[in-house]
Amino acid sequence: MTPSYLELVCPAGTPASLRAAIDAGADTVYCGFRNCTNARNYPGLNFDQDELVEGIAYAHERGRKVLVAINTFPRAGDEKPWHQAVDNAAEARADAIILADIGVLDYATRHQPSMRRHLSVQASAANALSIAFYRDHFDVKRVVLPRVLSVEDVAALIKETGMETEVFAFGSVGPMSEGRCFLSSYMTGLSPTSEGVCAPASHVAYKEDGDCIKSCLGCVTLNKFSKGEPAPYPTPCKGRYVTHGQASYLFEEPIGLNAIDILPQLKAAGVTALKIEGRQRSRAYVAEVVGAFRKALDGLAQGNTESSTNDLKNIAEGGRETFGAYKKGWR
């Protein structure tokens, strides 16, 4: 593998996905524990302590890194799972922890000072003042930027703060403040910031309605799609709502973020790392997306500036892709 043009940070929801990501060319893998400390707390997913130790050993033997996401917000008076997760990640010899809550950041700074700290996208730090606060108070080394910034915004932030940044390169797009969807809290009674999912599977239902399928979150019908029509995730932001008698995607259409064609621009903006989203998706997804980005990055590292073949459309939500906020075409 040639030296990475940009660090490729890839998702792993299971040990099998971690191995798939490493084998497909990830520089770094991020994962989380099987509990409420993890913003992808889905049933059957994630790592216990032994699996994390094994996964880190697999990565380190191949010269790669593992980051542990402890990126939800503790419930008042119940901080212990988050503190335990920080200590467990350190004990497993993770290369860094990805944190969002200032209390957890404070705990990690005081109790595991040598553990490298990254600021999770869940912290929604999207301006220089906010980023500088985390840098100065908790010695945060890297910030994962929210998906609301253009390439020019990203470049300006990097210039102003001097921070190492990680940006989303492939995955979902959403209009809300990262991880803080109040619509989801309202519909399910569960907070994405403390429970770790914006559409808890326990509240999602698909119901047959003649030739159509209805997707529901709690008691709200989010969408109704006919046979052959692409289906989006059952999240409130991808719901098709009826206003003035017309059903339409009011907030966000079912479409996936893919920045594979603007990697040179992100590099020029000063970005350090690219994040692939999808810990809740399969190892087949991980292998396919990581492989495509590895190929593109290796090509760029060797001076091949021609656009790589982008075959990821089928795996994106809704089978369609966008640059998202990186290129704000509506401006």
Partner: peptide, 19 residues
Amino acid sequence: IDGDMMFFSRSIEITGDTS
């Protein structure tokens, strides 16, 4: 193959308790 992709393209259909 990725289960979500199959779901997006409606190659598979799921009804009942999603969890």
